[in-house]
Design a protein around this nucleic acid. Structure first.
Length: 320
DNA sequence: CACTTGACCTGTCCGC
DNA sequence: TGCGGACAGGTCAAGT
């Protein structure tokens, strides 16, 4: 589910919504979902104020005034949804800014179909995917002093949330191994190509999905960027030219920036911090578009399995 | 060591 | 309509 653009969208939403709020109570389900001793939660989470919301790769970091941090991985179906009042989930009372954004997205959506099909609804940004919370997928409920709530929902229970000292976060194995942020201004095309040399004999798609090469790429943006760069996903890394790496670098950044602008991709579960969908999939060129024409050449897009994942390509633009 | 596959879970969809 | 199997956006452990 959430890849870099989705987690970044959630981060931005939470940054707006929860900083400065003070935690009053926390309820959680299994030790797996929140594997901290109750004593830690009591001592370092209850009564703490949210001071910052950060992101590294696909990991969300909520910093607390106790110098502890909530480290959160949404994995496939995790959601972090803030609710100040139950009625917030209806779209009736949008702010003027939200209203403007919604109108603009709707306009772009109508004009955005490249196959003559009016695709509307599935990616409509104003559509709320969550109903009354908590629901049966809710695994952690955090209540703030002002009565508002932050819910961690996770249907498939792959996600997790951990409480740890802020200073220890960089020492987590994942943080030590994870590659650079692809959207960082200082991250160059040359460094991008260089990172792949650690996986010379694997497929380019498997390497893109490897978080130690570059951070934050998942199945959607791997397929989208490979289509953009006209590279077949099963080609081995050591057969990719430097020109192709440069193109892939540009495409990956472009596609992720566009996705962030569109509030991420919602296929089934993903929602932002307000419980609303992202609309990127309306603009996707190959992902989940098997059987439809390639926007570039009209050839029918096909789906198959590569690097153990559902993979979408244009068989004309992307050859082995 | 490098790389690939299966497991972790629940829900949904598709074919019989 | 019911049931079994395949599949789903991520990551890690175990296997080759």
């Amino acid at each position: 589910m959430p890849e870099l653009p989705e987690v970044e969208t959630v981060r931005r939403g939470l940054h707006e919504l929860i900083i400065g709020r003070k935690v009053k109570a926390v309820e959680h389900d299994t030790p797996k979902g929140f594997p901290n001793a109750a004593a830690d939660v009591e001592e370092f989470l209850i009564g703490a104020k949210i001071t910052n919301v950060r992101r590294r790769a696909k990991v969300l970091l909520i910093d607390l005034s106790t110098d502890y941090t909530l480290v959160i991985h949404l994995k496939m179906t995790g959601q972090m949804v803030f609710v100040s009042h139950p009625s917030d989930l209806s779209s009736a009372d949008l702010t003027p800014l939200e209203r403007e954004r919604t109108a603009r997205e709707a306009e772009e959506t109508i004009g955005g179909g490249d196959d003559g099909e009016l695709r509307f609804g599935a990616g409509h940004p104003n559509e709320s995917l969550v109903g009354e919370l908590p629901d049966k997928s809710t695994r952690v409920t955090m209540t703030f002093e002002d009565g508002s709530h932050l819910y961690f929902n996770d249907q498939r229970k792959f996600g997790w949330m951990k409480l740890m000292p802020t200073l220890e976060v960089p020492n987590i194995d994942f943080m030590k191994k994870v590659g650079p942020e692809p959207l960082d201004a200082e991250f160059t095309a040359a460094e991008f190509a260089e990172r792949f040399k650690r996986r010379p004999k694997t497929s380019i798609k498997a390497a893109l999905l490897d978080q130690t090469v570059v951070a934050g790429v998942g199945n959607i943006y791997a397929d989208e960027s490979l289509w953009g760069a006209k590279i077949h996903p099963e080609r081995l890394v050591n057969t990719i030219s430097s020109e192709e790496f440069e193109k892939l670098y540009e495409e990956l950044r472009a596609v992720m920036n566009l996705a962030i602008e569109k509030g991420g991709s919602t296929d089934k579960n993903y929602v932002n911090a307000e419980g609303k969908r992202g609309s990127y999939l309306t603009f996707a060129r190959v992902f989940r578009r098997e059987g439809k024409p390639c926007p570039r050449c009209g050839t029918t897009i096909i789906k198959f399995k590569a690097a153990g994942r559902g993979t979408h390509i244009c068989p004309h633009c992307q050859v082995k």
